[in-house]
Design a binder for these strands. Structure first.
Length: 645
RNA sequence: GCUGGUGUAGCACAGUCGGCAGUGCAGCUGAUUCGUAAUCAGCAGGUCGUGUGUUCAAGUCACAUCACCAGCUCCA
């Protein structure tokens, strides 16, 4: 058999041998090699080669290497748990983006003290440097082994292994776990790790099931890598919008107003106002008509749209929903059925299409109490909402138009590089959640796939992530904790137009049902603001900065001149803080810098005499002395271009 | 909604075994008139999230409740 390595070496052998042995014969294996791929499949170094193969050796720097390394770390954790708490039952313990976790069924959830004890035990297991051996068993013997050990969850998992697939176990010392693998050669390689938190998590991710105890951890081959990760995580937390946003007086919350109902303070309001003016103008340039529709409606409207059946728990209802003899209102959780009334206002011709409707729309959603998070997940929020009513032949072009607008928004805000795309589809096995027939869904998703492939973006498919009326392109972004949320969404809807009796007279005189695109351009203002805070750590681009310029006289004697400079800046629309307090210049500079005001203009005798300002940035750079008009010109240019510095 | 954690002045925090409510920054007043990241002094600031209980006595103990945080679940 012929073994070809990705580095070019070729090894021929008559007898089966392991990846490690083959690589060793060629002298290309090092201690850093912890896993491999064989014909594209991830395996451990001890994997036996039994035929021609293409092999690539992996280190921790490779994704596959990380995965194997972290997975072994999770087994070491499980082994430690079984040593200290034999009564605990094992469930699953995969590698994840940042590290690993293991879910345990414990009589009592672990505490942080327990984690310290577990870490100590894990250190022992690493020092003992157990070899990790793989073996397989026939189905009934596998179940018998796990049943004897009292591992009920593992017995369930064995039943799920498809016929014909190996049921594999990994053994390290006295510990054996049902596991598809692969794993490291031995436990000794996991030199640096930390258990980061323990929380609850439902068995199989279903809230109807028992809540297990999930322990999260991170693991690295070297101590300094762990140290670096922990330092980075600490740094990321300093950018947390929920902390920074409050410190910078962008928003606050008040107990007696309630959960998910933040107060946007003046600084935050300026940013949202800038975003709103910008996006409304941009949409107007792109042919949108603006509307203003009510924040609430009678239940009758939601019955037509389907929200009454599919989304009632998510709405704030005013009145008794079950008393049909009395009026019952609900705050709107979305804009669609309201904005459709604009189209329905009179008979429409094919010439009226595409009709692009835009609204800065405030919505209310009664999220469960545990769901709220700073400005990212709230119960009342405002989005750059839009609905496009279209002829079938316009669908692809208009979808692309929405996509272009969304990308333009993300690029302008500097968020694009942090985003990923998700094609959110329905779940054909869970059709109760959705309106429409499989034929309608397959058609809508087919059309959308064609458009996405034509645009040529990379996307993940999200099954069971669709809206109840149609598939979506979701633009996803991660916060500082790595948690992903939808920032922008573009949806194709082939159902609601018919429900609302929307139609247009086509060229041939026939009544036709239009297609609808639901979309946001910039998304939800609150959520976008949160991500901007985290992206820029509060140092916003000039055009968004709540205060753009601080004018700082070196002494009270120059107050009049400072005020004159500030007046000139304000006259051209800039947001200025003129610090006339009787403080030393160093103190004023420190304070303005901490507040992340983009430009600090220091003025004293020299500047007063020449009609100039000494320019300093919030990053401490000295930009020299400029005349006031020179500074205004460059600042206005930066604002107009929405430059990101 | 579920699991775990937190809640003391505007902010960051201390408060031991249940025994007079504290520190720093911010704020206010005064002095200082100053050139690129914190001048000095004084003053004021509190129903210890809220409620109920235990106790001679509760920031501290118990129960309930509200809010905040992380995770799970959910997310049009």
């Amino acid at each position: 058999m012929k073994i070809v390595f990705s580095t070019g070496e070729v090894f021929s052998s008559d007898a089966p041998l392991s990846v490690f042995d083959a690589a060793k014969e060629l002298g290309i294996v090092t201690r850093a090699h912890i896993a491999a791929t064989v014909n594209g499949q991830l395996v451990g170094m001890t994997h036996k080669l039994e035929g021609d193969a293409e092999v690539a050796l992996l280190t921790f720097e490779d994704d596959g290497g990380k995965q194997v390394f972290r997975h072994t770390a999770s087994h070491i954790l499980a082994q430690a748990v079984k040593r200290l708490y034999p009564e605990v039952k094992l469930t699953i313990g995969p590698a994840i983006d940042t590290g690993f976790y293991y879910d345990f069924d414990t009589p009592k959830p672990f505490t942080s003290d327990d984690l310290a004890a577990l870490e100590a035990e894990m250190t022992k297991i690493v020092k003992e440097n157990h070899l990790i051996e793989r073996f397989t068993l026939p189905r009934d013997e596998a179940k018998k082994l796990m049943a004897e050990k009292g591992e009920d969850y593992k017995v369930l998992l064995i039943d799920r292994v498809p016929e014909g697939e190996d049921i594999s176990f990994y053994r390290q010392g006295e510990f054996t776990d049902l596991c598809a693998g692969p794993h490291l050669f031995s436990t000794g390689a996991v030199k640096a790790f930390k258990l980061t938190q323990c929380t609850g998590a439902y068995w199989e991710g279903d809230s109807k099931n028992k809540m297990l105890c999930r322990v999260y951890g991170v693991a690295y081959p070297a101590k300094d890598q762990l140290k670096e990760y922990l330092a980075q995580a600490e740094e990321a937390k300093k950018r947390d919008h929920n902390k920074l946003g409050r410190e910078l007086e962008i928003f606050t919350t008040v107990d007696c107003i309630g959960q998910g109902l933040p107060i946007i303070l003046p600084n935050g309001t300026i940013i949202i106002q800038q975003l709103q003016r910008w996006i409304e103008d941009e949409e107007q340039r792109r042919g949108y008509l603006r509307t203003r529709t009510p924040l609430m409606a009678k239940r009758d409207l939601y019955k037509i749209s389907g929200h009454w059946d599919h989304y009632r728990d998510g709405m704030f209802i005013l009145g008794d929903p079950d008393d049909e003899t009395k009026e019952c209102f609900a705050l709107r959780p979305m804009t669609c059925p309201f904005q459709y009334q604009v189209f329905l206002n009179r008979a429409r011709s094919y010439r009226d299409l595409p009709m692009r409707l835009g609204e800065t729309s405030t919505l209310f959603r009664n999220e469960d109490s545990g769901e709220m998070h700073g400005l990212i997940r709230v119960r009342q929020f405002t989005i750059s909402e839009g609905h496009l009513v279209l002829r079938p032949d316009q669908l692809a072009d208009e979808f692309r138009g929405c996509f272009d607008l969304a990308v333009y928004c993300l690029e302008t805000l500097g968020l694009k590089e942090d985003c990923s795309f998700r094609f959110s589809q329905w779940d054909p096995n869970n059709t109760d959640k959705y309106e429409g027939t499989p034929e309608q869904w397959n058609y809508a998703q087919g059309v959308m796939k064609e458009i996405l492939d034509d645009i040529g973006i990379e996307y993940k498919v999200g099954i069971d992530e669709a809206a109840f009326y149609g598939p979506k392109l979701d633009i996803q972004i991660k916060n500082v904790f790595g948690k992903e949320d939808t920032l922008i969404t573009i949806q194709i809807d082939m159902l609601l137009a018919e429900k609302f009796g929307m139609e247009y007279i086509d060229r041939d005189g026939q009544k036709k049902i239009p297609y609808i695109i639901h979309r946001t351009s910039m998304g939800c203002y609150e959520r976008t603001l949160a991500l901007l805070i985290e992206k820029y750590a509060g140092a916003f681009p000039m055009w968004l900065a709540p205060t753009q310029v601080a004018v700082l006289p070196v002494g009270e004697y120059y107050s009049d001149y400072a005020r004159q400079v500030a007046d000139q800046l304000e006259a051209v629309g800039m947001r200025v803080f003129c610090d006339l307090r009787n403080e030393k210049i160093g103190y004023k500079i420190r304070e303005a810098t901490v507040q992340k005001i983009p430009y600090l203009l220091v003025v004293g005798e020299r500047e007063q005499e020449t009609g100039s300002v000494a320019v300093r940035t919030r990053r401490g750079e000295d930009e020299g002395t400029k005349t006031v008009s020179e500074f205004i010109a460059s600042a206005l240019e930066e604002i107009a271009k929405k430059t990101i510095k």
